[in-house]
Protein backbone atom coordinates (compact mmCIF):
# COMPACT_ATOMS: atom_id res chain seq x y z
CA UNK A 1 0.00 0.00 0.00
CA UNK A 2 1.97 3.01 -1.23
CA UNK A 3 -0.62 5.63 -0.76
CA UNK A 4 -3.15 5.84 2.00
CA UNK A 5 -6.48 4.48 0.83
CA UNK A 6 -9.22 7.08 0.48
CA UNK A 7 -12.66 6.43 1.94
CA UNK A 8 -15.62 8.70 1.27
CA UNK A 9 -18.26 9.12 3.97
CA UNK A 10 -21.68 10.39 2.88
CA UNK A 11 -23.70 11.12 6.01
CA UNK A 12 -25.58 14.16 7.18
CA UNK A 13 -24.95 13.64 10.90
CA UNK A 14 -21.92 15.58 12.09
CA UNK A 15 -21.37 13.26 15.03
CA UNK A 16 -21.32 10.15 12.92
CA UNK A 17 -18.99 11.81 10.42
CA UNK A 18 -16.61 12.88 13.16
CA UNK A 19 -16.65 9.43 14.77
CA UNK A 20 -15.92 7.78 11.43
CA UNK A 21 -13.23 10.27 10.55
CA UNK A 22 -11.43 9.58 13.84
CA UNK A 23 -11.73 5.80 13.69
CA UNK A 24 -10.89 5.47 10.02
CA UNK A 25 -7.95 7.85 9.98
CA UNK A 26 -6.48 6.26 13.06
CA UNK A 27 -6.74 2.95 11.20
CA UNK A 28 -4.67 4.21 8.33
CA UNK A 29 -7.29 5.47 5.90
CA UNK A 30 -7.60 8.89 4.37
CA UNK A 31 -11.11 10.27 4.86
CA UNK A 32 -13.25 12.56 2.79
CA UNK A 33 -16.77 13.42 3.89
CA UNK A 34 -19.92 14.81 2.37
CA UNK A 35 -23.12 15.89 4.13
CA UNK A 36 -25.51 15.58 1.20
CA UNK A 37 -26.07 13.13 -1.61
CA UNK A 38 -25.08 15.51 -4.37
CA UNK A 39 -21.98 16.59 -2.58
CA UNK A 40 -21.16 12.91 -2.16
CA UNK A 41 -21.51 12.21 -5.88
CA UNK A 42 -19.34 15.13 -6.90
CA UNK A 43 -16.71 14.22 -4.29
CA UNK A 44 -16.68 10.63 -5.51
CA UNK A 45 -16.23 11.84 -9.09
CA UNK A 46 -13.42 14.25 -8.35
CA UNK A 47 -11.52 12.07 -5.89
CA UNK A 48 -12.38 8.44 -6.65
CA UNK A 49 -12.24 6.64 -3.29
CA UNK A 50 -11.54 2.93 -2.74
CA UNK A 51 -14.76 2.64 -0.78
CA UNK A 52 -17.82 4.71 0.00
CA UNK A 53 -19.77 4.62 3.26
CA UNK A 54 -23.27 5.80 2.39
CA UNK A 55 -26.15 6.80 4.65
CA UNK A 56 -29.66 6.19 3.25
CA UNK A 57 -31.43 9.03 5.06
CA UNK A 58 -29.90 12.03 3.39
CA UNK A 59 -31.43 15.48 3.50
CA UNK A 60 -31.46 16.23 -0.23
CA UNK A 61 -32.06 12.92 -1.99
CA UNK A 62 -33.09 9.45 -1.00
CA UNK A 63 -30.04 7.29 -0.38
CA UNK A 64 -31.31 4.62 -2.80
CA UNK A 65 -31.23 7.18 -5.60
CA UNK A 66 -27.67 8.14 -4.74
CA UNK A 67 -26.75 4.45 -4.63
CA UNK A 68 -28.16 3.88 -8.11
CA UNK A 69 -26.47 6.98 -9.49
CA UNK A 70 -23.13 5.97 -8.05
CA UNK A 71 -23.48 2.46 -9.39
CA UNK A 72 -23.80 3.80 -12.92
CA UNK A 73 -20.06 4.35 -12.97
CA UNK A 74 -18.55 3.64 -9.56
CA UNK A 75 -17.53 -0.02 -9.37
CA UNK A 76 -15.68 -0.11 -6.07
CA UNK A 77 -17.34 -1.18 -2.78
CA UNK A 78 -20.18 0.77 -1.26
CA UNK A 79 -21.15 0.02 2.33
CA UNK A 80 -24.50 1.26 3.55
CA UNK A 81 -24.56 2.61 7.08
CA UNK A 82 -28.09 3.49 8.05
CA UNK A 83 -30.62 3.60 10.88
CA UNK A 84 -33.07 1.85 8.63
CA UNK A 85 -33.03 -1.68 9.85
CA UNK A 86 -35.89 -3.39 8.07
CA UNK A 87 -35.07 -6.46 6.04
CA UNK A 88 -36.77 -4.90 3.04
CA UNK A 89 -34.43 -1.91 3.07
CA UNK A 90 -31.37 -4.08 3.47
CA UNK A 91 -32.37 -6.41 0.64
CA UNK A 92 -33.22 -3.48 -1.57
CA UNK A 93 -29.84 -1.87 -0.95
CA UNK A 94 -27.96 -5.12 -1.59
CA UNK A 95 -29.92 -5.82 -4.74
CA UNK A 96 -29.17 -2.31 -5.93
CA UNK A 97 -25.46 -2.86 -5.76
CA UNK A 98 -24.41 -2.18 -2.18
CA UNK A 99 -21.66 -4.52 -1.06
CA UNK A 100 -22.60 -4.52 2.58
CA UNK A 101 -25.07 -3.07 5.00
CA UNK A 102 -24.62 -2.03 8.61
CA UNK A 103 -27.31 -0.58 10.79
CA UNK A 104 -26.76 2.21 13.24
CA UNK A 105 -25.85 1.92 16.03
CA UNK A 106 -22.84 -0.10 14.90
CA UNK A 107 -19.69 -1.38 16.49
CA UNK A 108 -16.62 0.30 15.02
CA UNK A 109 -14.70 -2.97 15.09
CA UNK A 110 -17.36 -4.57 12.95
CA UNK A 111 -17.34 -1.70 10.50
CA UNK A 112 -13.57 -1.80 10.14
CA UNK A 113 -13.69 -5.54 9.50
CA UNK A 114 -16.33 -5.11 6.82
CA UNK A 115 -14.33 -2.34 5.19
CA UNK A 116 -11.24 -4.51 5.09
CA UNK A 117 -13.11 -7.44 3.60
CA UNK A 118 -14.79 -5.28 0.98
CA UNK A 119 -11.55 -3.66 -0.12
CA UNK A 120 -9.66 -6.90 -0.16
CA UNK A 121 -12.33 -8.63 -2.16
CA UNK A 122 -12.39 -5.82 -4.64
CA UNK A 123 -8.65 -5.77 -5.07
CA UNK A 124 -8.22 -9.52 -5.05
CA UNK A 125 -7.47 -11.15 -8.33
CA UNK A 126 -10.86 -12.20 -9.62
CA UNK A 127 -9.23 -14.59 -12.06
CA UNK A 128 -7.74 -16.63 -9.28
CA UNK A 129 -9.45 -20.01 -9.48
CA UNK A 130 -8.23 -21.23 -6.10
CA UNK A 131 -9.57 -20.18 -2.71
CA UNK A 132 -8.40 -21.05 0.74
CA UNK A 133 -10.47 -20.59 3.89
CA UNK A 134 -8.71 -21.99 6.90
CA UNK A 135 -8.85 -25.74 6.34
CA UNK A 136 -11.17 -25.47 3.33
CA UNK A 137 -9.70 -25.36 -0.14
CA UNK A 138 -11.69 -24.73 -3.28
CA UNK A 139 -10.39 -25.22 -6.78
CA UNK A 140 -12.74 -23.92 -9.44
CA UNK A 141 -10.82 -25.37 -12.35
CA UNK A 142 -10.63 -28.94 -11.26
CA UNK A 143 -14.03 -28.62 -9.61
CA UNK A 144 -12.72 -29.93 -6.36
CA UNK A 145 -13.09 -28.86 -2.73
CA UNK A 146 -10.93 -30.21 0.06
CA UNK A 147 -11.46 -30.10 3.79
CA UNK A 148 -8.38 -30.84 5.86
CA UNK A 149 -6.80 -32.01 2.57
CA UNK A 150 -9.54 -34.58 2.08
CA UNK A 151 -11.64 -34.30 -1.05
CA UNK A 152 -15.26 -33.47 -0.24
CA UNK A 153 -18.03 -35.39 -2.00
CA UNK A 154 -20.19 -32.57 -3.31
CA UNK A 155 -23.07 -32.73 -5.75
CA UNK A 156 -22.75 -30.36 -8.67
CA UNK A 157 -25.34 -27.99 -7.16
CA UNK A 158 -23.50 -27.99 -3.86
CA UNK A 159 -20.30 -27.15 -5.64
CA UNK A 160 -21.85 -24.33 -7.66
CA UNK A 161 -23.23 -22.92 -4.42
CA UNK A 162 -19.88 -23.17 -2.69
CA UNK A 163 -18.10 -21.62 -5.67
CA UNK A 164 -20.53 -18.70 -5.67
CA UNK A 165 -19.91 -18.11 -1.98
CA UNK A 166 -16.16 -18.38 -2.41
CA UNK A 167 -16.11 -15.83 -5.20
CA UNK A 168 -18.05 -13.40 -3.00
CA UNK A 169 -16.17 -13.85 0.20
CA UNK A 170 -17.28 -11.54 2.98
CA UNK A 171 -20.18 -10.20 1.02
CA UNK A 172 -23.84 -10.69 1.95
CA UNK A 173 -25.63 -12.52 -0.84
CA UNK A 174 -29.40 -12.23 -0.83
CA UNK A 175 -31.61 -15.30 -1.20
CA UNK A 176 -32.82 -14.13 -4.57
CA UNK A 177 -29.35 -13.52 -5.85
CA UNK A 178 -28.11 -16.95 -4.82
CA UNK A 179 -31.14 -18.74 -6.24
CA UNK A 180 -30.82 -16.86 -9.50
CA UNK A 181 -27.11 -17.58 -9.86
CA UNK A 182 -27.17 -21.26 -8.88
CA UNK A 183 -30.63 -22.50 -9.85
CA UNK A 184 -31.68 -19.93 -12.46
CA UNK A 185 -34.31 -17.22 -12.85
CA UNK A 186 -37.25 -19.58 -12.51
CA UNK A 187 -36.25 -20.60 -8.99
CA UNK A 188 -36.00 -17.18 -7.40
CA UNK A 189 -38.83 -17.87 -4.93
CA UNK A 190 -37.83 -21.45 -4.13
CA UNK A 191 -36.00 -20.67 -0.92
CA UNK A 192 -36.63 -24.18 0.41
CA UNK A 193 -33.94 -25.48 -1.99
CA UNK A 194 -31.48 -22.98 -0.64
CA UNK A 195 -32.25 -23.94 2.96
CA UNK A 196 -31.72 -27.61 2.29
CA UNK A 197 -28.50 -27.14 0.36
CA UNK A 198 -27.04 -24.72 2.85
CA UNK A 199 -27.74 -27.24 5.61
CA UNK A 200 -26.09 -30.01 3.57
CA UNK A 201 -23.12 -27.86 2.64
CA UNK A 202 -22.59 -26.86 6.25
CA UNK A 203 -22.43 -30.51 7.28
CA UNK A 204 -19.60 -30.99 4.82
CA UNK A 205 -17.55 -27.83 5.16
CA UNK A 206 -18.04 -26.65 8.74
CA UNK A 207 -16.09 -28.00 11.66
CA UNK A 208 -19.24 -27.80 13.74
CA UNK A 209 -22.36 -27.40 11.63
CA UNK A 210 -24.31 -26.25 14.71
CA UNK A 211 -21.94 -23.33 15.10
CA UNK A 212 -21.14 -22.34 11.52
CA UNK A 213 -18.08 -20.19 11.05
CA UNK A 214 -17.83 -20.08 7.26
CA UNK A 215 -21.37 -19.97 6.02
CA UNK A 216 -23.17 -17.40 8.14
CA UNK A 217 -26.95 -16.84 8.09
CA UNK A 218 -28.01 -13.23 7.76
CA UNK A 219 -31.55 -13.48 9.18
CA UNK A 220 -34.21 -12.80 6.62
CA UNK A 221 -31.67 -11.52 4.08
CA UNK A 222 -29.32 -14.18 2.88
CA UNK A 223 -25.91 -15.63 3.63
CA UNK A 224 -22.39 -14.38 4.07
CA UNK A 225 -19.38 -16.56 3.41
CA UNK A 226 -15.96 -16.17 4.91
CA UNK A 227 -14.12 -16.26 8.15
Amino acid sequence: MNEKELILIVDDEVQIRRLLEITLSSNGYKVLSAATGHEGISQAASHPPVLIILDLGLPDTDGFVILKKLREWYLKPIIILSVRSSEDDIIKALDNGANDYLTKPFRTGELLARIRVAIRQNQGNSDNPRFLFESLEIDLISHIARKNSEILKLTSTEFSLLALFAKNEGRVLTHHYILKEVWGMGYMEQTQYLRVFVAQLRKKIEDNPAKPKLLITESGIGYRFGS
Binding site: E87, D88, H175, T191, Q192, R195, V196, V198, A199, A210, K211, P212, T217, S219, G220
Partner: peptide, 17 residues
Protein backbone atom coordinates in the same frame (compact mmCIF):
# COMPACT_ATOMS: atom_id res chain seq x y z
CA UNK B 1 -44.26 -11.25 8.80
CA UNK B 2 -42.20 -12.04 5.71
CA UNK B 3 -43.13 -15.68 5.53
CA UNK B 4 -40.44 -17.84 4.00
CA UNK B 5 -39.10 -21.37 4.34
CA UNK B 6 -36.99 -21.69 7.46
CA UNK B 7 -34.54 -24.28 8.64
CA UNK B 8 -35.23 -24.43 12.37
CA UNK B 9 -31.77 -25.86 13.07
CA UNK B 10 -30.26 -22.80 11.48
CA UNK B 11 -32.60 -20.57 13.46
CA UNK B 12 -31.81 -22.15 16.83
CA UNK B 13 -28.08 -22.12 16.08
CA UNK B 14 -28.27 -18.47 15.25
CA UNK B 15 -29.96 -17.62 18.54
CA UNK B 16 -27.71 -19.73 20.71
CA UNK B 17 -24.66 -18.27 19.00
Amino acid sequence: PRIDWCDLHDLINKVTQ
